[in-house]
């Protein structure tokens, strides 16, 4: 939406540009002709009711799905661009430097907290170990690189307050700590764009507040922009600079948190409207819902 005033949009190119993204699974259209931008240095939130297609968008961006149509452009600070839909899955992280977390936490449970953070630094360590051959000989170059990697992991452990548990298996951590560790692990890959899939799910209010602090730190202190899916509005409204709202795979709103909060379409999508008001609201907001009206009316799901 070009209506809201923004000075940064013209100053720096967006870190991620999604154009006409469509994802079909057989006859099911999960995401339909979605276009939005995530600006560099911003926290962009992607919200919408359950089943709106948010995680599908994430999976397209991070290379787990190949989009049916559309273009995903990621721009680095030095001006190089990467077309994410053309990269193999692991190259999205390796060369385009997009990192992600998962809705259901995917840590390496049987490995220690420290090992989790070292696996994330696979690329630089692999290079330092001469693709294993030099490392097998135990050369000094590799040992130095490993020490540097451990120092980096320690810095993140201090940041997420898990230094004391560095040698414990990741699977033994409490839920909130696992969420923080997954974010730290993603950050250890040195990403340009960090995609967080419901980072506040299952956290208590105190942990949510800590998460807000962590995300602000990432945005302000690192050269990393954040794209997040979230249901917890206390997180979304407080920390995001920009909100994109999806419903039934289509974008229904795009703007600052304040704008989105007062958008009638967003309210209709989240809260639903009374049966008799459907026609009126639809006429007012100018949409015709293609998937049948029933799901849109009545109480929220």
């Amino acid at each position: 939406m070009a209506t809201h005033p923004d000075t940064r949009a013209t100053a720096t190119p967006p870190v991620l540009t999604v154009e006409h993204l469509t994802m079909r699974f057989g006859g099911l259209v999960a995401v339909s002709d979605l276009s939005f931008q995530a600006r560099r240095g911003d926290i962009t939130a992607l919200i919408g009711p359950n089943g709106a297609g948010k995680t599908t968008v994430f999976n397209c961006i991070t290379g787990f799905y190949k989009p049916t149509e559309g273009m995903l452009t990621l721009a680095h600070a030095d001006g190089t661009t990467h077309l994410l839909e053309r990269l193999p899955n692991h190259e999205v992280n390796r060369t385009a430097r997009v990192a992600r977390t998962f809705q259901n936490i995917r840590l390496f449970q049987g490995m220690t907290v420290l090992e989790n953070l070292l696996v994330a630094q696979h690329k630089p360590l692999m290079r330092a170990s001469g693709y294993t051959i030099l490392g097998l000989l135990g050369l000094k170059g590799f040992r130095d690189a490993q020490d540097a990697a451990i120092e980096r992991a320690k810095a993140w452990l201090t940041r997420i307050d898990l230094m004391k548990r560095a040698d414990d298996p990741a699977g033994a951590l409490p839920y909130g700590a696992q969420r923080r560790l997954e974010i730290a692990r993603a950050m250890c890959t040195d990403p340009v764009l960090l995609c967080l899939d419901e980072p506040a799910a299952g956290l208590n209010p105190r942990e949510s507040a800590e998460l807000n602090g962590l995300l602000r730190h990432i945005r302000d202190e690192h050269d990393t922009s954040v794209l997040l899916i979230e249901h917890d509005m206390s997180v979304v409204m407080e920390i995001s600079d920009h909100v994109v709202v999806l419903d039934y795979g289509q974008k229904i709103a795009d703007g600052t948190p304040a704008e989105v909060r007062s958008d009638p379409r967003v309210i209709a999508a989240y809260l639903g409207v009374e049966d008799e008001e459907v026609e009126a609201v639809e006429a007012e907001v100018g949409i015709s819902v293609p998937h049948g009206d029933d799901a849109h009316t009545g109480a929220p799901a």
Partner: peptide
Amino acid sequence: LPIGRAWEALREDEIACRSLG
């Protein structure tokens, strides 16, 4: 070495491995 840790990470969770490049 990183390759050995990558093997074990692969055993733990292949999808997470891909997301880490």
